[in-house]
Design a protein around this nucleic acid. Structure first.
Lengths: 265, 265
DNA sequence: ATGCCTTTGTGAACGCGTGCACAAAGATGA
DNA sequence: TCATCTTTGTGCACGCGTTCACAAAGGCAT
């Protein structure tokens, strides 16, 4: 989700809904696996199972791309792989720069999934002069001073930010000023960018916190159910499980106004 | 988004919508920053800006938690930090195991964001015997044989999968069998889990592909606009930019049925 | 050629999420 | 104490996304 844009309708350009676009890579991956096993055709039901979605949703998604199926038979795997690839823009080469070659940046540089679908790591950039020249994943790290030149020389339009949070906004601005119009942000910060620039963020901490919420809820529900022996509670939980919110683990880390338990990130 | 569940209504438990839960960590981060600067109160407008969301949305989100604001003044920062922390379950300790200590797993182990909000890395687990005993981020890697024992001993309910795609489902099943009920999956695979287990996935490749789609669209629109000199096209794009879909880069890699351009991952 | 059977493609309904706009609430100063 | 001003909390409407259910379409066997 891009930040700092005044909210355009989700379905833009032709008319492919954003939610559908987000699922196309999923279908593509499943189709690629089928293609490797030389499976010629696949039904919406089979493919949907492989991709982990509803078959009706899959068919509707594909209907936005056009009518690529054959009724009574299914979809031609190879043809669909090509159509989705083309729709996603994967039939062309996308040079990408990774900024911030710490643990995460190095992991990203080594990640095979980058190179496999038209994405090419054009450069690794770090602000630490000691990193300059050091090879990571077979590519020599370049100093941040070179950022603008690298982007210009390679025609880079996609940048990956893997710096500490404090440096992210500044790096972002330099990337944008140099011509980058899509940013994948791993730093735990809200980036503000001008209109026309897309930002997607990957935030490990947020994902964990969402899991913790559900985990707490599950623990609370289970405790409430076992304590009250009220089975109906499980089906339609009405009252909040007050006394059961802090079950599990030993806890004890929650003060009266409990602020000590929360540490600034 | 969990996979393999028959789709429960998005707002569960008490009544906090899933979309709101996903934003709470964002608010919490912004509030923590304010707290460090000793800011006593904050208005919905200010906080919304800091978190990168609409102020009305923020107020509605908070209204699900209760009425924690003061009209005419705003929200008490410290109090709100505590309330959100409690709601997310961050006032308790969450032991976490990371399975698969490759580049990514090591990066996650070193990531400060894990430890900072009640998440404690209880163990690092890898299937490679050569890794066993090696310290990563100050913690000795343990062999996968110990997985069940580790989870049981530490009361782990959250697992992070950072293995190659091929091993992910098997690891997932062992985690679930051992008692893990929340999984953060970094492997590019669809995990199937029994009901009651939450799965969230982080997929670098998918994020990049979504960016590529928008990037291609932008390039196509820009090319169409400059070719046709039709400015209105930019404001409300009506007709698909047919001749401009494959602009940018040199292309030429697209055959008649263009299958060669797509490489299996 | 014809009827059957499978699977696609989509119209329609429903529910969630978002944003507007305003009334209620409380602080603050005279 | 009372008026004013700021900011919250929310009713309402709208649009996107999901799902159901079915008609249209095409292969295949007889």
């Amino acid at each position: 989700m891009a930040t700092g844009r005044p909210h355009r309708p989700a379905t833009r350009g032709r008319g492919i809904p954003e939610a559908t676009v987000a699922r196309l890579p999923l279908y593509l991956r499943a189709l690629t696996a089928l293609s490797e096993r030389s499976v010629p055709t696949v039904s919406s039901e089979e493919l949907a199972t492989a991709a982990g979605v509803n078959s009706a949703k899959l068919r509707k998604d594909f209907s936005y791309l056009g009518s690529y199926g054959t009724r009574g038979v299914g979809y031609d795997v190879e043809y669909l792989v090509y159509q989705i690839s083309r729709e996603l823009g994967l039939t062309q080469d996308w040079p990408v720069v990774i900024v911030g070659i710490g643990n995460l940046g190095a992991a990203l540089a080594n990640y095979g999934g980058f190179a496999s679908r038209g994405f090419r790591v054009a450069a690794l950039i770090d602000a630490d002069p000691a990193m300059a020249g050091r090879p990571v994943a077979g590519i020599a790290v370049q100093h941040a001073d070179e950022l603008e030149k690298i982007i210009d020389d390679n025609g880079v339009s996609i940048g990956v930010i893997a710096t500490p949070a404090g440096a992210a906004q500044q790096v972002c601005e330099r990337l944008v000023a140099a011509g980058v119009t899509s940013i994948l942000n791993f730093a735990p910060t809200v980036l503000s960018v001008p209109d026309g620039v897309d930002v997607r963020k990957v935030d490990l901490s947020i994902e964990l916190q969402i899991l913790a919420f559900h985990e707490q809820r599950k623990a609370g529900e289970a405790a409430a159910a076992s304590e009250l022996s009220d089975v109906a509670e499980l089906v339609t939980p009405v009252a909040p499980p007050v006394a059961a919110t802090k079950r599990r683990a030993d806890d004890g880390s929650e003060g009266p106004d409990g602020l000590s338990a929360v540490m600034p990130a």
